[in-house]
Simulated assay, not measured.
Amino acid sequence: MDIRLIMQRAKAQIKNNMGVLATCTLLTGIVSYALNRIGSPFEQLYFFLILPALELGFILIYLSIIDRKEIQVSDVLAGFNDYGRIIVANLCMVIFITLWSFLLIIPGIIKIYSYSMTFYILAEDPTISPIDAITKSKEMMQGNKLDLFCMHLSFFGWFILCIITLGIALLYVGPYIGAAQANFYRTLVNKNKDSVDVNVEPIEVI
């Protein structure tokens, strides 16, 4: 997979949408920071009950950008329209990853990458169940986990910049990473469109 091409495409796609993307990133960042400052139990409630829906909202935004559709700030809340499925999917992934992590850290990290396309699948298929979406993500990521890891690793310099700028750079880096991962997903879909069917019989998830 051509990671460089994916990143170049993502950078070009967010160029004309930075106003909306930066605003969404800033607003959700403020909410996250405020709840984290308050501490438990609000931090845990945010992680399990709010963050998954916001993440789905961002995914819907990035997929819309790829499809050359107009976006607006309120779209970041679109994930709450599919709240049940996204919460169940997130809870299942947390449980599965935690169980694998008991076998040492590496298996847990591998499963994070195995399940990384779950929210994208849910975003594009309103009929698929959370478990089937996790299973489909696992299938899609077979042989592709290292590519995604390398793409994430290529953002290391950007993360350093975010630290140096006290998080200000996240207004650009966040959308850049989000768009890159959405393009990674779409590349997988196009690559496997003849063999990947979201309605196939589910296999063992874990």
Results as ranks from 00 to 15, higher is better:
88 V>K: 14
167 G>T: 02
70 E>Y: 02
110 I>F: 12
5 L>W: 08
183 N>L: 05
43 E>L: 14
101 S>A: 15
26 L>Y: 02
202 P>I: 14
49 L>A: 10
132 D>T: 07
172 Y>H: 10
161 L>M: 10
47 F>A: 11
55 E>D: 13
162 C>E: 12
191 K>Q: 15
139 E>T: 11
177 I>E: 00
130 P>Q: 03
165 T>M: 14
172 Y>V: 13
163 I>D: 07
184 F>N: 08
31 V>Q: 03
198 V>N: 10
200 V>M: 08
171 L>E: 03
62 Y>A: 02
204 E>M: 04
132 D>A: 03
145 K>V: 03
150 C>N: 08
125 D>M: 04
32 S>M: 12
107 P>C: 04
169 A>W: 09
181 Q>P: 00
60 L>K: 11
80 F>M: 13
159 F>V: 10
165 T>P: 15
82 D>H: 15
111 K>V: 01
52 P>L: 08
98 T>W: 04
170 L>S: 08
177 I>K: 06
159 F>R: 07
159 F>M: 12
202 P>L: 02
172 Y>Q: 13
48 F>R: 02
145 K>S: 09
3 I>S: 08
53 A>E: 00
15 K>G: 05
72 Q>P: 02
95 I>T: 11
37 R>S: 10
66 I>A: 08
191 K>S: 13
17 N>T: 00
179 A>G: 07
181 Q>S: 03
52 P>N: 05
75 D>M: 13
93 M>W: 00
68 R>F: 05
159 F>T: 09
109 I>Q: 04
102 F>H: 08
103 L>M: 10
64 S>L: 02
180 A>V: 12
88 V>C: 11
170 L>I: 08
17 N>P: 07
20 V>N: 06
48 F>D: 03
64 S>R: 14
167 G>R: 05
164 I>L: 15
123 A>D: 08
195 S>Y: 06
90 N>W: 12
22 A>H: 09
137 S>G: 03
173 V>M: 08
197 D>R: 06
61 I>S: 01
20 V>Q: 10
158 W>M: 11
143 G>T: 15
